[in-house]
């Protein structure tokens, strides 16, 4: 069914009726708050934090405001499409504000109101959750944000990223888009989410878009991914990251000219590790050493970034 121009289909944009409407509303909200609206990073990452717009841009003194959707891959969370809440691929909405504004909590609550979460009707709570990313060499303090007992966002004041002290501190908001959408749409199964806000035959659900992918990728992550290749991927990415960092190092040791490509290799190594972990081929003791190896790469990239224009050197 084609909508006539005279009656624009508002439900396609309604954050309470469509998944895309939720995303678009957040994009508009944060655009109006002065954030640069970026597009997803074009690599496989485990969380929106890995996007260089957060990891690297949160370092250094230059002010920075950005928001973007980031598809996130958690190979181990695959459930073959059978679990109504767990996905190995999902969307995060990521906001990064440097320095963290004094009214960050209020801004966050306003954004919830914008997508239809009414604080007079719902129980919104900030519950302690200290954030730490051992692979990124990063930590911060903040909360899980709960809406009626459901964790819908992570709220973090970055203290350290890639081994570098944050000065000033950035505020990071990460919205779990599927969870939020399930909440505002009143849906119990993620695959039942209305994606485009339309009804009848025109309705496209989250399952229509992603169910097959979840099934196939679960098989891939747990059963098929070639372990030898992944081990090779990890080592090659690690070596390449180091090589690129060495290449970009300047003689004066005060400038660096090849951080972003090197950081891509760090992301690659991290994803290879996540897949190996899902395949269950990394023992407990080895696990720690792989995490450390990725962290070393992230820290080297962070240190190099501090020698660039982007950090406001």
């Amino acid at each position: 069914m084609i909508q006539s121009d005279a009656t624009p289909n508002s439900s396609a944009l309604d954050p309470k009726k469509s998944f895309q409407g939720l995303i678009l509303t957040l994009q508009n909200f944060w655009a109006q708050k002065g954030a640069v609206i970026l597009q997803p990073y074009d690599m496989e990452v485990g969380a929106g934090t890995f996007h260089p717009a957060t990891t690297l841009r949160s370092l250094g003194k230059k002010p920075w405001k950005a928001a973007y959707v980031q598809p996130s891959r958690r190979p181990k969370d695959g459930r073959y499409g059978e679990n109504p809440n767990r996905l190995q691929h999902y969307y995060q909405y990521q906001v990064i504000l440097k320095p963290s504004p004094d009214n960050l909590q209020e801004l966050y609550l306003q954004s919830l109101a914008a997508i239809g979460v009414d604080a007079a009707l719902h129980d919104i709570r900030f519950v302690e959750d200290d954030w730490e990313s051992p692979t990124l060499g990063a930590w911060g303090l903040g909360w899980e944000c709960w809406c009626d007992g459901m964790e819908v966002s992570q709220f973090t004041y970055f203290q350290q990223v890639a081994g570098v002290e944050c000065a000033p501190v950035s505020g990071e908001l990460t919205y779990g888009l599927e969870r939020l959408a399930m909440y505002v749409q009143g849906v119990e199964n993620v695959y039942d989410l209305n994606f485009n806000g339309l009804d009848g035959d025109a309705r496209i659900t989250y399952g229509d878009v992603f169910l097959q992918a979840e099934q196939e990728y679960s098989r891939h992550n747990f059963e098929a991914a070639n372990v030898e290749k992944l081990f090779g991927d990890f080592s090659r990415a690690e070596a390449e990251c180091k090589a690129l960092l060495a290449f970009g190092e300047q003689v004066d040791d005060k400038h660096h000219k090849m951080v972003l490509p090197a950081y891509d290799q760090c992301i690659k190594a991290s994803h290879a590790f996540n897949l190996l972990d899902a395949r269950g081929v990394i023992s407990v003791t080895e696990r720690q050493s792989y995490i450390l190896r990725v962290r070393e790469l992230a820290k080297a990239c962070g240190a190099a970034w501090m020698k660039t224009e982007g950090a406001g050197r």
Binding site: P84, N85, D118, A119, A120, L121, H122, D123, R125, C147, D148, G149, M150, Y183, E188
Partner: peptide
């Protein structure tokens, strides 16, 4: 234990929590 006196007497909050518990 919620932190607000909700405008609907807490129906939405209880229902929301129920959904999460079920999940």
């Amino acid at each position: 234990v919620s932190n607000v006196i909700a405008s609907d007497g807490g129906k939405a909050i209880a229902a929301g929590n129920g959904r999460v518990v079920r999940a």
